[in-house]
Design a protein around this nucleic acid. Structure first.
Lengths: 144, 144
DNA sequence: GTTGAAAAAACAGAGGA
DNA sequence: TCCTCTGTTTTTTCAAC
């Protein structure tokens, strides 16, 4: 369980977090370690699933998905809700949560109008409460 | 505003979303287009900021941050809250939201005990309501 | 952990349909 | 915008230390 990452691992991860397309030799120059050693560490981090992948990050505004909203919903049709969210392109995140509501949905829509349409189609599954984001201050940040 | 992405752009983006470290030539083989053309499209997508970057994805469980919680908070000390969240390593996301509460915070802690400590340090800024995730069903998904 | 060297692969740029 | 062609750079995989 304790994978005892050292400072070098953390540095490599930081570089890859900042730019996943950095080459091994670029990283090796930055941290003053030989290229084969950097490569070996990366492979180990991937094998241990500490690094689970590499992904392109998109500007959602440019994809007409610039409006972020969180919807809390209380439903008894759990499987139906999950299926619905998996199908819906607006849904980026879905969590089963504790408390009065049992799911939290994060949706990205082109506009508030489009959000309203989404809410309509969701309403048949149970009562919900929406929180529109007026500013995304921090997103998907992992400090190492 | 209309960047009229075509199917080839979308395919390139899908491959990079799935694995940001794919080489240009790997992508070019997958979509049966020459390497220079794929590269040129990637550069344009980056220049237009449709692709805003590439990032390593970490398994938070392995980093002792496996517990996901959403905290709604109502505060009048906005700047203080933002500063606090920016400093806190547990905070991965922060949104200014509409409604009764004015901020939504996503936190990743090692355990529920650690969450309690975080809540304690937050309590001085205003009343809050937490929703612990029992299952992260979808995360950070962008369908193209 | 390092260096070094050879083979394979990927990349960058020019020129043209 | 896309292609092919070519030279250069980078990566990979060894080995030996």
């Amino acid at each position: 369980m304790d994978h005892h990452l050292d400072d070098i691992d953390r540095k490599i991860m930081q570089f890859l977090q900042h730019n996943a397309r950095m080459t091994v030799s670029q990283i090796s120059k930055e941290i003053a370690m030989s290229q084969p050693s950097v490569k070996e560490r990366m492979i180990k981090l991937e094998e241990k699933s500490i690094i689970s992948g590499y992904s392109a990050v998109f500007q959602l505004r440019e994809l007409n998905r610039g409006t972020t909203t969180f919807i809390l919903i209380k439903t008894e049709q759990c499987q139906k809700l999950v299926d619905f969210c998996e199908e819906a392109k607006e849904v980026t995140d879905l969590y089963r949560i504790s408390g009065e509501y049992n799911y939290l949905i994060k949706v990205q829509t082109a506009s508030i109008e489009e959000l309203a349409e989404f809410q309509d189609s969701l309403s048949k599954l149970g009562p919900s409460k929406s929180h529109i984001s007026m500013k995304n201050i921090l997103e998907n940040r992992v400090l190492l």
